[in-house]
């Protein structure tokens, strides 16, 4: 129990550092630290598939974000006091926290999930699909539609990046 608290508190500290640092490269690296904390937490929560995927995705997203920030010279940010904007954001966040505090009572206690569908998958995965890894059996057999949609989204994002980045634009 204690180790989960420690790791999530470290993730929160990393998130605050990533938010408040002036230098963009440093804040991107702090985001990487938050992602590594998430990887550790996945390992402790018995999700090794997710830990592997999160680790490699974290490295790739770090490379992409460094690509965006390296070689960028920004003028120092002039802070104009727009107190209304700030207050609006604080009100929004506080409202979210209040609603989530009220929702906490309806959640199942930590460590005893409601496995309505999950128990069925656990019981029948080996007999129906022949795969020992239940997560793999769920994403590729029981819930193949999800993965098809995911493939579509990935394809769309590749097309979007290629269309945004291409050199020659059409002249009007």
């Amino acid at each position: 129990m204690l180790e989960h608290h420690v790791i999530i508190l470290l993730m929160i500290a990393g998130a605050i550092v990533a938010m408040e640092l002036e230098d963009m490269l440093s804040s991107v690296i702090a985001l990487g630290a938050v992602g590594i904390g998430l990887t550790l937490e996945f390992l402790l929560l018995r999700a090794p598939d997710l830990a592997i995927t999160q680790l490699v995705v974290e490295i790739l997203s770090l490379i992409i974000l460094i690509r965006a920030t390296v070689g960028v010279k920004l003028p120092p940010e002039k802070v104009k006091g727009r107190i209304g904007y700030f207050l609006f954001a604080v009100v929004f966040v506080v409202a979210f926290l209040v609603f989530s505090y009220r929702a906490l009572g309806a959640l199942p206690a930590f460590g005893s999930p409601i496995m309505k569908m999950g128990s069925l998958y656990v019981k029948e995965a080996l007999a129906k699909t022949g795969a020992a890894n239940i997560v793999s059996a769920v994403i590729l057999d029981f819930r193949g539609y999800d993965t098809l949609g995911e493939a579509t989204i990935l394809f769309t994002s590749v097309i979007g990046v290629l269309a945004i980045v291409r050199k020659v634009g059409r002249k009007p």
């Binding site: 929560l45 018995r46 999700a47 598939d49 997710l50 995927t53 999160q54 995705v57 790739l60 997203s61 992409i64 974000l65 690509r67 965006a68 999930p113 496995m115 569908m117 999950g118 998958y121 656990v122 995965a125 239940i134 997560v135 769920v138 994403i139 819930r143 999800d146 993965t147 995911e150 989204i153 990935l154 769309t156 994002s157 590749v158 979007g160 990046v161 945004i164 980045v165």
Partner: peptide
Amino acid sequence: FVDPLPQALILTSIVIGLGVMAVMVA
């Protein structure tokens, strides 16, 4: 076992997050 269903959902969500972030960076 722990519940496999959230893990399967989040496995796709991680890769989708990477794609969305690439579009935003571009």
